[in-house]
Amino acid sequence: MTQTSPDAIRQILSSVRTIAVVGASPNPARDSHIVTAFLHAWGYTVFPVNPGHAGGRIAGLPVYATLADIPGPIDMVDVFRASEHVPAVLEETLALPDRPSVFWTQLGVRDDASAERAEAAGLAVVMDRCPKIEIAELGLPRRTPEPG
């Protein structure tokens, strides 16, 4: 069952530190760019993932082609791709040697079969929500970046 209660979402956003934004855009007018920049400014360690822009920068951050290219474990995968791409992103997520604890899809992005599969694999799932909006609505404080 996907996580929808304010308490569950508060706990998720308070516990994760590293977030991969799959589908991040280099266009500053796009929501995926705005959310990437916001999460970084809010104190999360953010890894934009966009194969068409790998090696470049989005919101000042290095861009990776795939989740597997990210150097080190991530806590949350935030999917900014159309719903039909969610199963492939989940496959990539589940193939990671250190699985994230959270699989999140943005507003308008939903795939119930993938949600069930992710939960069966032990991931917390949030679908059809935006972490930027949730942080504002819950009044969560900025994070203190971890040293190193």
Results as ranks from 00 to 15, higher is better:
G148C: 07
E84M: 11
R129I: 00
Q3W: 02
V89M: 03
V86R: 00
A54E: 04
P73G: 13
R99Y: 11
E84Q: 11
D111M: 06
P97S: 07
E91G: 04
M1T: 14
P51K: 10
L140A: 11
R81M: 04
P26D: 15
S101D: 01
P48N: 08
R30A: 14
V35Y: 06
P6N: 14
M76T: 00
A113S: 13
L13N: 09
R81L: 04
A20N: 03
V86H: 00
T105D: 01
G52T: 10
L123M: 07
V21H: 07
S5E: 15
Q106V: 01
L39C: 12
R10M: 11
T18C: 12
F80V: 05
P71A: 14
R81G: 07
A95C: 06
A37C: 09
V109N: 00
S14T: 13
T105G: 03
A59T: 06
H33N: 15
P131W: 01
P26W: 12
A88S: 10
P28R: 07
M127I: 13
P51D: 10
S25M: 14
A20T: 06
A120T: 08
D78L: 06
V35P: 05
P48T: 12
E146S: 14
S25R: 15
Y64S: 09
I133S: 12
P71D: 12
V21T: 08
Q3V: 12
M76G: 01
T4P: 04
A54K: 11
G23D: 07
N50R: 08
A95F: 05
L107C: 06
A82P: 00
N50P: 02
P131Q: 13
A82H: 10
H85W: 05
A8D: 15
G108C: 07
R30W: 10
S101I: 03
R110I: 15
R110L: 14
G60D: 05
V102R: 00
P141R: 13
G52P: 05
E84G: 03
T93I: 09
L107A: 08
C130V: 04
A121C: 11
G72P: 06
L140M: 09
Q106L: 08
V21P: 04
R129D: 01
G52W: 03
S15P: 04
W104A: 00
D75C: 05
P48Y: 10
P87S: 09
A24Y: 09
L138V: 05
P97G: 10
E146N: 11
V102I: 04
E119S: 05
P147Y: 05
S114W: 00
E137I: 02
A20G: 07
M1P: 01
D111F: 00
R110F: 07
L123R: 04
G122S: 07
T2Y: 00
C130D: 02
D128Q: 09
E146Y: 08
Y44W: 05
I133M: 11
P71K: 13
M1S: 15
